[in-house]
Design a protein around this nucleic acid. Structure first.
Length: 842
DNA sequence: TGCTCACGCGCG
DNA sequence: AAAGCGCGCGTGAGCA
């Protein structure tokens, strides 16, 4: 008897095969726990229903369980049993991955788990449950060979346990919930900690799904490899075969598609697509393109290029890939930008992200294990980092498997998206991909001489500060004590020097902490950090040797499947965090298109506050945006009334003072309250006593009752559904903290507004209207000087067009223009209501 | 040497 | 019962 299927070979990680066989053969006789004394119920048998629907599998018996001889009757068991509906109790069977209590409740070892596996497996084979609910990491690893319960919980995975195939539901271990709880919930709708919401919801969904579970299918290696054909280009007829297949696929509704390349980005001189794979139903074809071992002649390659281009332009179905931005960017660079919007595409990664936004859960490997119970990665031995050096057949095998599973995964997830009513959100997600890719390709112009100038300037500045640090008395003392130079970059060194050696009163090493310290060393450390940040984060990545700038253009990547809030992110290098304030801002001079070109930045003004109005529909806040009521100024006055000491002797009658305190009221009080801050935080922000802050907040909620209401409704909905949903339709799943719960809709509404406007501009197919940069509330363009006015008119109109029914306040856009990204001057400010674009005033 | 982690800090 | 959140990247530290 095979104790576990081959495709879960990783279950055995750590133990050599002979040792596993030994443990499986002799079971309890060789179990390290066998000889343990003092156990009241060693080798505890499974209990409960003989033919259960649900098999509850926990880690190991605890003290209470050992005493009673029944699984999950201790504290953790109570947490779990509290949430199991009574009608289910007769349909459940209980067991643990190991059946004897380990000393001191320590985690069971792999040896113990494997010694116990045959008996647990036999019990499952005999009792034939429809589903196994596995609690915590130990059963998860037992079932699929993976750790990471917080990533896996709430899913269902088809698994094979010996002769029995069933569904596995990973759920957080109740003992973790019990430990995290801050109070004991008195009824089923109360939750003692954020994680308990996830726990309860996962459990409820698992029970609810039992009666309409599909047949579980666990893919084997043979199933995975079936129907994959590879073409090297070395044989007669190879070219015809590829052309044939492309012709065959051209009218197929759903084609899995995948490239293997020798680089992540397609911009470098040597960037090449090595192999290509297409998959349709039972036939998958992977063929060589520019791989080192490909057998094509130059004319073959030209013919292939033409054929692929034609396929991309004329394919009438949908090409489905995993991580569409990648395939689109390469397609555009290698076959022409016109292919980006020529055909229809699908993205299984985007589907996964829309269904569940948790990070690190959206790789093809993860999802294939989730949906098909197969460990795809284990089937290939390719070196992903250097595919061109790898064996061609191996690379194509890998490529073919990927394309095949893109398609299969897409089909599975399409059903799930439909079931959960997520089509509309997925469509929005899909729409922003070509939009973002075209912005990536357009890139951002870098002025090389300026980069060079800043590099020299900041290198010198850094050397100067380092010289001063060397001469510093305290740093000298540090050197004598520690026998090495004081490093401003080391938090250890900084902390030791200031708090241990110099015995300065305080703690912490961040700017807030160090800025209060008078000692020159603290000042020097801060100065060093500032300069080093400029140099290493904003200047060095633009130097030629960093390899980010191609022909004077940098192409930051936009992530559209990474964030917990549906915002985009930017990387390699990050273009969304370039300094904008104070002295640091000057590095923006590096972004300069030159000639007659101008940088034009269009910012949505106060978009997040407007999102709060949209979400809450609070009458006073909504009115503020229609009538121009100055909330922040009003609250500056109110704070001053409650806490006159706040003004430190100044008066709000003075214009400059008012401006400063209006800003403080905005950030410290108004926005903080919108986002769920409490009295302690507001008091700290405003430097006023917590009790006064509490009174202010009370008054604030009296003024904006529906905002508070909205917070509470969000919480209620979150508790009943297990996720937070925004007006945008984006969902964030448990566990979500109270403040995250408030923030998520705001950020995701903001994201859909800007991405929608960006997509509309991009779809006009006018290269001038394709933004070069997107920064959450800002679209930045590069335009010829004489076309700025004309283009801004179109851009502003598109950005201010109201395209969602839930927008209940006017939108505003502020435009500024400059020769580089530093010297930007305001061009104008526009609002949707004044342009007659709506929305309708409520 | 390569990996993960915490921290600090830039933006929204 | 109380509660600012969302990113990416450079750095050192600790571990294998």
């Amino acid at each position: 008897m095979a104790f576990f299927p081959e495709n879960f070979g990783s279950v055995a990680s750590g133990l050599p095969k002979h040792r596993l066989d030994f443990l499986h053969r002799h079971e309890c006789q060789v179990c390290p726990l066998y000889k343990q004394v003092g156990l009241q119920h060693p080798q505890m048998p499974a209990s409960g229903a003989e033919r259960p629907l649900v098999y509850i599998l926990a880690e190991a018996p605890g003290a209470e369980e050992d005493k009673e001889g029944v699984q999950l009757v201790g504290k953790a068991g109570q947490v779990l049993r509290f949430r199991i509906p009574g009608r289910w109790l007769s349909k459940i069977r209980w067991n643990n991955v190991i059946r004897s209590r380990p000393p001191g409740n320590r985690e069971p070892t792999e040896e113990e788990i494997e010694a116990c596996r045959p008996s647990v497996q036999r019990d499952i084979e005999t009792s034939k449950p429809k589903a196994i609910f596995g609690f915590g990491n130990v059963p998860l690893h037992w079932a699929i060979g993976k750790n990471g319960i917080t990533n896996w919980c709430g899913r269902r995975i088809p698994i094979r346990v010996g002769e029995h195939v069933c569904w596995f539901f990973p759920i957080i271990h109740p003992s973790y919930i019990s430990r995290m709880r801050r109070f004991q919930p008195s009824h089923i709708d109360a939750y003692g900690c954020d994680e308990e919401v996830a726990f309860a919801h996962d459990l409820r969904r698992a029970f609810e799904s039992i009666n309409n579970l599909p047949e579980p299918v666990v893919h084997t290696e043979d199933m995975a490899r079936e129907g994959i054909e590879i073409i090297t280009g070395r044989n007669r007829g190879d070219l015809a075969r590829v052309l044939d297949f492309l012709h065959f696929a051209i009218d197929k509704k759903l084609v899995g598609f995948d490239y293997e390349t020798n680089a992540i980005r397609p911009y470098g001189e040597n960037a090449k697509i090595l192999t290509v794979a297409l998959s349709h139903r039972e036939s998958t074809l992977a063929f060589a393109l520019h791989h080192r071992e490909a057998g094509w002649s130059a004319s073959d390659k030209a013919a292939l290029g033409t054929a692929i281009h034609q396929f991309l332009m004329e394919h009438r179905g949908r090409k489905v890939v995993h991580q569409l931005p990648f395939e689109l960017e390469w397609s555009a660079q290698c076959f022409g930008q016109e292919v980006v919007r020529a055909g229809r595409w699908g993205c299984s990664l985007s589907q996964a992200y829309i269904l569940d936004e948790r990070p690190n859960t959206n790789s093809l490997d993860f999802l294939c294990l989730q949906y098909f119970g197969i460990n795809l990665k284990a089937l290939s031995q390719v070196n992903v980092k250097n595919l061109d050096a790898d064996n061609l057949e191996e690379v194509m095998g890998y490529n073919g498997l990927d394309a095949k599973y893109h398609r299969l995964l897409y089909i599975e997830q399409s059903l799930r998206i439909k079931d959960e009513g997520r089509q509309k959100v997925y469509q929005h997600q899909l729409r922003r991909i070509p939009t973002m890719v075209l912005t990536q390709i357009k890139g951002v112009p870098v002025d090389i001489p300026t980069v060079d100038y800043f590099y020299r300037k900041y290198t010198k500045l850094l050397a100067k500060v380092e010289g001063k640090i060397k001469q510093n008395k305290a740093a000298e003392r540090f050197r004598k004590l520690k026998k090495y130079d004081f490093r401003p970059s080391s938090l250890h060194d900084v902390s030791f020097a200031l708090y241990k050696m110099l015995k300065i009163y305080g703690s912490g090493t961040n700017e807030a902490a160090l800025s209060h310290i008078k000692h020159p060393l603290a000042k020097l450390v801060l100065r060093w950090r500032k300069i080093n940040k400029q140099l290493s984060t904003y200047i060095k990545p633009l130097l030629p040797e960093a390899g980010n700038v191609y022909n004077g253009v940098v192409h930051p990547t936009y992530g559209v499947t990474h964030t917990r809030s549906w915002r985009t992110s930017s990387s390699d290098p990050n273009i969304q965090n370039q300094p904008k304030h104070g002295d640091s801002k000057e590095v923006r001079r590096q972004i300069r298109p030159g000639g007659d070109l101008r940088i034009v930045a269009c910012d949505y003004s106060g978009i997040q506050a407007r999102n709060v109005a949209m979400e809450s529909r609070d009458p006073r806040l909504v009115k503020a945006f229609w009538d121009g009521y100055d909330i922040h100024g009003d609250w500056a006055h109110r704070i001053a009334r409650h806490a006159p000491q706040w003004l430190k002797g100044g008066t709000l009658k003075d214009k400059d003072t008012f401006k400063i305190y209006r800003q403080k009221a905005k950030n410290g009080m108004v926005f903080a309250s919108f986002f769920g801050a409490g009295a302690a935080t507001v008091g700290r922000h405003l430097s006023i006593p917590e009790e006064i802050a509490r009174d202010l907040i009370e008054e604030f909620w009296d003024s904006f009752p529906k905002i508070k209401n909205w917070h509470l409704t969000l919480k209620e909905n979150y508790h009943s559904t297990g996720y937070v949903e925004a007006l945008s339709g984006f969902r964030r799943h448990a566990p979500v903290s109270y403040n995250e719960m408030i923030n998520t809709p705001i950020q995701s509404d903001e994201a859909i507004i800007i991405c929608d406007a960006m997509a509309r501009l991009s779809e006009k197919d006018d290269p001038r209207l394709q933004p070069n940069i997107e920064v959450h509330d800002d679209l930045t363009f590069i335009l010829p000087k004489h076309e700025v006015d004309k283009c801004v008119e179109i851009i502003v109109k598109e950005m201010l067009t109201i395209s969602f029914p839930w927008i209940n306040v006017p939108l505003g856009v502020e435009v500024s223009v400059g020769k580089d990204w530093y010297d930007m001057e305001k061009l104008g400010e526009f609002t949707s209501d004044k342009l007659g674009l709506g929305p309708v005033r409520p």
